[in-house]
């Protein structure tokens, strides 16, 4: 700034200039506050000495964190969600990764159709996915329960896995595999020592995404769960009478665990690059 030439701006002028230059940062800060209000609220009310209703602040306590299973059914629903999440993630990641490799590494008849079939579940509202699957189960006289939830979750996670892994495979330098072959690695060794380690971060990311989609899903689950409970379903059902503070503990814990996993993942990938 050439303050010698221009007379010193007045304070209000300067502050308005600062404001307009940083407008977008201020805006972003407000957006982040907006994003985090419910998270902070959930976290704060996990310390509420609530008794039955967790609607009004009644005093600080650590009891809910010490005994997250204190409220009936909370832990059972979380355990169900974790089991469903793990199984669905495993199956969806394996099936999706295979498709991703086929699509990005092979030229085959029906590739466009395959792409379309991968895209469609992502473009279909959850309520339709849930309702159609339930309609089929009802027609087949299958009672919905644990395994129908797993089936549904694998179905909608596959597409997301394919898209994530495909992006990683596409960004892979094809010459690295040629180098491996040039250096006496046969097809199997090339895959094992070069392709797989390089695509692994993509697969891990896809698995993380699949797990969080599965763990957080409510609509499709609600259609295909019968009497089986999951954590989101538990929250929905108890929302009417006020959810117990223990649910806030679970939600907050999930938040911090996921945050740590993501941050550790970022740090590790940054160190690997070095």
């Amino acid at each position: 700034m050439s303050t010698q030439v221009i007379p010193k701006p007045s304070l209000s002028h300067r502050s308005s200039r600062w404001f307009s230059r940083n407008l977008i940062r201020i805006y972003a800060a407000l957006a982040f506050i907006y994003l985090f209000i419910p998270v902070a609220y959930t976290f704060a009310f996990s310390f509420n000495d609530s008794g039955k209703s967790n609607l009004v602040w009644q005093g600080f306590t650590l009891d809910n964190w010490k005994n997250p299973c204190g409220a009936p059914q909370v832990c059972q629903s979380v355990a169900n969600s974790l089991q469903i999440g793990f199984i669905s993630t495993l199956v969806a990641t394996v099936l999706g990764t295979m498709i991703a490799f086929a699509i990005s590494r092979h030229d085959f008849k029906g590739r466009r159709t395959t792409n379309l079939l991968i895209f469609l579940p992502m473009a279909t509202p959850e309520v339709v996915l849930g309702a159609s699957l339930l309609a089929m189960f009802l027609n087949l006289r299958v009672n919905p329960g644990f395994w129908t939830i797993v089936i549904a979750h694998v179905m909608f996670c596959i597409s997301f896995v394919v898209v994530t892994v495909k992006a990683r495979v596409a960004s892979l330098d094809p010459r690295l595999e040629q180098v491996a072959m040039d250096l006496y690695a046969n097809e199997r060794d090339t895959f094992r020592y070069v392709t797989l380690p390089l695509v692994m971060p993509g697969i891990a990311g896809a698995a993380l995404l699949a797990f969080s989609l599965s763990f957080d899903d409510f609509i499709i689950t609600n259609f295909n769960s019968g009497i089986e409970s999951t954590f989101p379903k538990f929250v929905y059902v108890s929302a009417a009478r006020g959810i117990p503070a223990q649910a806030n503990v679970i939600g907050s814990a999930m938040f911090f665990i996921a945050l740590i996993i993501v941050i550790v993942g970022q740090v590790v990938s940054r160190q690997r690059k070095k």
């Binding site: 994003l35 419910p38 959930t42 954590f231 929302a239 939600g251």
Partner: peptide, 17 residues
């Protein structure tokens, strides 16, 4: 990460909040 982070708390919990 901060943009995605609120997602880690359950969708339903946030709506209830």
């Amino acid at each position: 990460v901060l943009v995605v982070a609120p997602f880690f708390t359950s969708f339903l919990l946030r709506t209830v909040a």
